[in-house]
Design a binder for these strands. Structure first.
Length: 254
DNA sequence: AATTGATGCAACCGCCCCGCA
DNA sequence: ATGCGGGGCGGTTGCATCAAT
């Protein structure tokens, strides 16, 4: 089943690129510009897959790439962006001139993750490892301003109490890559899965979301009229909680 | 000096999105 | 409206290098 491969696997070089291959690719793109990657290998005289050419160009050969060590400022910016965007490496890279998504992804997995863990912060949620969490399942809906129709954007997953939140704790699991959260919000393309901390006052009807240090879903900044419906509550601490709506400011518990 | 485990990073894989016919 | 194909992306793998013993 499935699609045909992007190129013939036979007669294709794999592995590290040689200087000669780099030179050929650079020369070709300088002469013809970036275009149909599928045709690049043949046109450039390379025994490579088009995808491989694209990757090599984008990650290593493209002009303007920084390379080298990340600065402390870049570190902090990556952490901050990741807390908003999750593993959207291309979006994060877009805010770090001269850095590529692949480079940032690798740097995150090898350095920043460890750095955050040493600070006692869960890299997936950006919350204290020791902070209590609860099991909410929330889905989100975007209000259609024009006709008042509310439609669901995306269902999200049931979050376990130990590793809730975030775009699919990818960390080291080598077992299939289930894409869970895909949103089409403008600009930030935020992953809106929320991990709600235990409210300090059980009886409160209005919960200030910002004061709850919601790990994800910086919906406050997206500017869109969002409505987030608590569809299925699995919270042990608040069994009476049935359903409600979360707008930019509050959760209304009914 | 040799061996072994840990780490870092370049590159590949496979899925998804979107434009186009 | 639908199917196809290219491009893009996140996740994973493999290998080179480093550090510890």
């Amino acid at each position: 089943m499935g699609r045909s491969p992007c190129c013939e696997k036979a007669h294709i070089n794999k592995g590290a690129w040689t200087k000669e291959e780099d030179d050929r690719l650079v020369a070709y793109i300088r002469a013809h510009g970036e275009g149909c990657w599928r045709s690049v290998p043949q046109a450039a005289g390379l025994l490579r897959c088009g995808k491989s050419c694209r990757l090599r160009w984008i990650n290593y050969l493209r002009p303007g790439l920084k390379r080298g060590n990340f600065t402390e400022q870049e570190d902090e910016l990556i952490i901050k962006l990741h807390s908003h965007l999750g593993n959207k490496w291309s979006l994060i890279a877009g805010r770090l001139p001269g850095r590529t998504d692949n480079e940032i992804k690798n740097y995150w997995n090898t350095h920043i993750r460890r750095k955050l863990l040493s600070r006692g912060i869960d890299p997936a949620t950006h919350r204290s490892i020791h902070a209590p969490t609860s099991d909410f399942t929330i889905s989100f809906a975007k209000r259609e301003e024009m006709d008042g129709r509310v439609f669901s954007c995306e269902r999200e997953k049931i979050m376990s109490s130990s590793s809730c939140c975030s775009s699919n704790s990818s960390n080291s699991s080598r077992e299939g890559s289930g894409q869970i959260n895909k949103y089409n919000f403008p600009d930030l393309n935020l992953d809106l899965s929320l991990c709600l901390g235990t409210p300090s006052q059980k009886q409160q009807q209005q919960v200030d979301v910002q004061s709850m240090q919601v790990g994800k879903g910086s919906c406050f900044s997206c500017g869109w009229g969002l409505e987030m419906k608590i569809e299925e509550c699995k919270c042990v601490a608040f069994p009476e909680l049935k359903s409600g709506f979360l707008d930019h400011r509050s959760i209304e518990m009914k």
